[in-house]
Design a protein around this nucleic acid. Sequence first.
DNA 1: GACCTGCTGCGGATTG
Length: 735
Amino acid sequence: MTDPYQLLAQPVQRWVHKQGWESLRPIQNAAIEPILNTDDDVILSASTASGKTEAAFLPILSRLISNTEEQESGCQVLYVAPLKALINDQLNRIELMTDGMNIPVTPWHGDISATRKKKFRDKPDGILLITPESIESLMVNHGPHISRIFHALSHVVIDELHSYIGDERGIQLQSLLHRIDIALRRRVPRVGLSATLGDMDIAASFMRPEKKRKVVLINSSDDAEELRIQVRGYESVAPSLEKLALPEEDEEVNEPVENDVFQIAQHLYKTLRGSHNLIFANSRRNVEHYADILRQMCEEHRVPIEFLPHHGSLSKEIREFAEEQIKKSSTPKNIICTSTLEMGIDIGDVGSIAQIESPFEVSAMRQRLGRSGRRGDPPTMRTYIREEELVPMSSVQARLREHTFQASAMTQLLLNKWCEPPLVKGLHLSTMIQQILSIIAQHGGATADQLWKVLTVDGPFSHVEQPVFVDLLKQMGEKQLLMQMTDGALHHGKVGEQIANHYSFYAAFNTPEEFTLLVGGKRIGRLPFDRPLAVHSYLIFAGKRWLVINVDPDKKIIDLKPAKGGNPPIFTGGGGLLHGEIRHEMYRLYCDSTEPTFLNKQSREFIKEGRDFFARNKLKDQWFLQDGKDVHLFFWEGDVIQDTVVALLAYHGVRAENGGIVVTAIETNKDRVINALEELVDYPPKSEEELSREIKNKWIGKFDNFLSDDLLNKSYGSHRFDIEDTLTSLKKKFS
DNA sequence: GACCTGCTGCGGATTG
């Protein structure tokens, strides 16, 4: 066998040599042959910091170098990233790799000057680093030039592949890449990079939706990797009535800090101060809450403030300040963050990860764990779990110690190297509306037949049936998004023109309106529009305390000044969907009698208490539990199935709620619920669409407001419900 | 019981 390294072009070999590498990593060796010698699509899956970028670019650059003699100039590599910050980071890395190879590298996103973009459009060359939204803008504004700009395209590289699969942005990216292939009349090989792909087959069919195309999967996992993981338990004291008393108006008050929150903060302070760590707190509200408590602790002990908040509603300046601080080794800093620091940008050496309460996905845990332990130390994560003190009124969830079991099950799955396959479902009609308008902008018009071919035949919308597509076009006509010329060609209607000509058109995902928060005229961040603050109320934001001095609903501005009181802000948001495998693992953990090794003393105690309750109520075999007027149903399934059960029961007149570990049917009895479920198994509703009719607030996609009631029910049902899987699960219960 | 992501072209004035 030949050494794959020998296949690389001379200048690329010289670059490898200059790095002082003794050998290439396994993933880098494995990637060379398929990328260099074939036109297959390739997925490179390997842990964080394993050199995936180099694995893709060493063979790609080798190919470009051997091609340069024949090629006239033109964009040769299209590298797509989900974050601007990632493009800025990769620009430096790739420029170093191409040093002396005469291959220019151009970044393109919203912060790059129009001049630089124009220069590239006029004389495209080398490697383009770009976001999906900026490709969209290229299509809409420079449609006729697409084939000229990309005629020499050799490869498309998709970084952080997992971040696209299953959502609007993924469908949009599939559509854009497909449209580039169509413009060039050939298939450009694609290379996908990721550390957390739960299912390689799903990833492969995302990369290339066309059937009968081979995707080469290169998976390099380091089995010997040591991990340090602990799940720590904390118990809250049930709140006393005095603490719930309402404050006098204008009084500077703070929500009381619960004792378990205080203990968690104390442990973070004691364990993490003096080094670099990331603290993931799951919600922006919790980030602010812990940032405030930890700042006070630092002030009380008269030490420098070493805990900084970081989330998406903070201004860019505040976020970048925190990032700079943790990059410096001289000043130890901890950043308390949401998922903002889960992916991408290199923030230097992080000693350990703290996770406050479980995230919703094992893949998020894995991604977060991968941010620590970069310099020889094993990745380290402490998960802090809160459980309520048990009182006579305590819920069944509290008695089962649900949070401890969920965190333990997720940790076990992480150790088993499992993570969620992406949830690929839904019609994505909102994104289809966007792509229809975009294709028309690109070509200055299109026929219904052309749209159908581009979008559905080998395209990203092959799951959309023709009658739905026809209905959608009619609807778009009625809402003035489209109009039809006498020759049959479709053009933008009055409303379509307005939407597609504004820069807010390029993103496929939905964003809420927001207020801007100002201190002395300076922006510190944003708050969602539907949660306006009253004048004279107190707020904790950016880790500091403020008084609201003015609210301007027209300009969407809130003015603040420093204060001593304050409460963490409330943000809006839906719920996460837990995967069924996590509930299956939780069930196994309740049935089991051995103790996982990663528990501390208190969480071991919680596991024992949860198992006692589980055994006393015979929940291993029994899936009903009458609780006063309510009935708890134990399905041990994911949230899509449990949400579908709730909707199915409502359809049969039984009110129910998905409470996580249980579905609770309210004010009813066991017999009535069993009757309803048996009837459902025998006479299920015909479709998810039918099930959606009684649901309110069905606008989830950006352009859902243009759908008819029928299409909206179809769309909503396809995204949120799964009758088939639910019936399979129910039938198992009755067998 | 949630989080995150992204974003024009054009004209006119000013400067080198």
